[in-house]
């Protein structure tokens, strides 16, 4: 827990991490993993290519569907923690677990920095919390 407070860049993913993992020890472990991945840095051309997979399900229009959440414009640490949660099976959805399992650390880093910079549009009949 303590670590999370002394590293402000990780602050925004604190909530996500605490919701996803059962114990403070695993939260700390997760925080470390997120930091390690983000330290690999951005590669936007690679991120854009990899995001071609995501957009088949995750539309950039926020009202397309509530069943598939908006993933654009979120902080990189939040996205990383979410992908790791699917990868570790802490969050269950067979599709997303399979998607996340096929990503290595460098790929996650490239993806999350690109996705966080990607804008989304709010549709007319949106009920999405992203708008």
């Amino acid at each position: 827990m303590h670590r999370l407070w002394i590293n402000p860049s990780i602050g925004s993913s604190l909530l996500v991490i605490m919701l996803l993992v059962a114990t403070p020890a695993s939260a700390e472990n997760m925080t470390q993993k997120v930091e390690q991945i983000l330290a690999l840095g951005a590669d936007d051309a690679y991120g854009e290519y990899l995001a071609g997979e995501c957009i088949a399900c995750h539309s950039r229009t926020a009202d397309a569907s509530d069943s598939i959440p908006m993933i654009y414009g979120k902080p990189p640490e939040t996205l990383t923690a979410m992908l790791l949660a699917f990868q570790m099976g802490a969050r269950k959805n067979p599709t997303m677990q399979s998607v996340a399992e096929a990503l290595n650390a460098a790929e996650i880093a490239a993806l999350v920095f690109y996705l966080s910079k990607t804008e989304y549009v709010c549709g007319e009949s949106t009920s999405s919390s992203a708008c």
Binding site: I55, A56, C57, S59, T61, A64, S65, D66, S67, I68
Partner: peptide, 16 residues
């Protein structure tokens, strides 16, 4: 939920 995912997918992939 699985069916609803497919509805979201159809909208997303045809937009793509």
């Amino acid at each position: 939920t699985t069916y609803e995912e497919s509805v979201g997918w159809y909208a997303s992939i045809t937009a793509d």
